[in-house]
């Protein structure tokens, strides 16, 4: 019985040793793979790949302060319909710069369909035009506006 106990003990010891050896083997293996694929261990270095990291967003359509970050469009009813249909060919900046009535937006859409390869919008057209008129309303500017947004500075003469 004692010999059996002694044998069991040795067996457990051998088992532990085998596990340890196995563990070392795995570690060495991973190390080896790093030496093959990433000899500089660059994945553990903090400052690298900044160009990539800046551009990685899982949520392309996140909203911050009421603005759709990727396009700069105001978050309101119809936003994603506008994003999907109006920012493929040109920047949303071309949309947000402009201020038009429903009639002129519809005429612009017709022009884009006739000459610029814009597809048929179907029921989305109404959604888009309503979004634009509501969120980018026309402003009465008269024949000449006041000078605005003046940044005053001391001029040394």
């Amino acid at each position: 019985m004692a010999a059996n106990k002694e044998f069991q003990k040795k067996l457990r010891k051998a088992e532990r040793l085998a596990y340890f050896a196995g563990f070392l083997f795995v570690i060495a293996g991973i190390g080896g793979l790093f030496l093959l694929y990433d000899p500089d261990f660059s994945i553990f270095q903090k400052k690298q790949n900044t160009l990539l990291s800046n551009n990685i967003e899982i949520d392309e359509d996140r909203i911050e302060n009421g603005i759709h970050v990727r396009t700069g469009l105001i978050d309101a009813k119809g936003l994603m319909t506008v994003v999907t249909n109006c920012t493929n060919c040109h920047s949303a900046k071309l949309v947000t710069q402009n201020r038009m009535s429903a009639e002129r937006w519809n005429a612009t859409i017709k022009w884009m369909q006739e000459t610029q390869n814009l597809w048929e919008l179907g029921s989305n057209q109404k959604v888009i035009v309503e979004y634009l008129v509501a969120n980018y309303p026309q402003k009465e500017k008269g024949r000449r506006e006041h000078l605005m947004n003046i940044n005053w500075y001391e001029l040394e003469n």
Binding site: L33, Y37, D38, I43, N49, S53, I56, E57, I58, D59, R62
Partner: peptide
Amino acid sequence: MSMDRRKFITKTALSSLATLI
């Protein structure tokens, strides 16, 4: 929600491992 950079790179490295296995 932006993806954690470290995680992304780790996963890229992992995917090289993955191709191996």
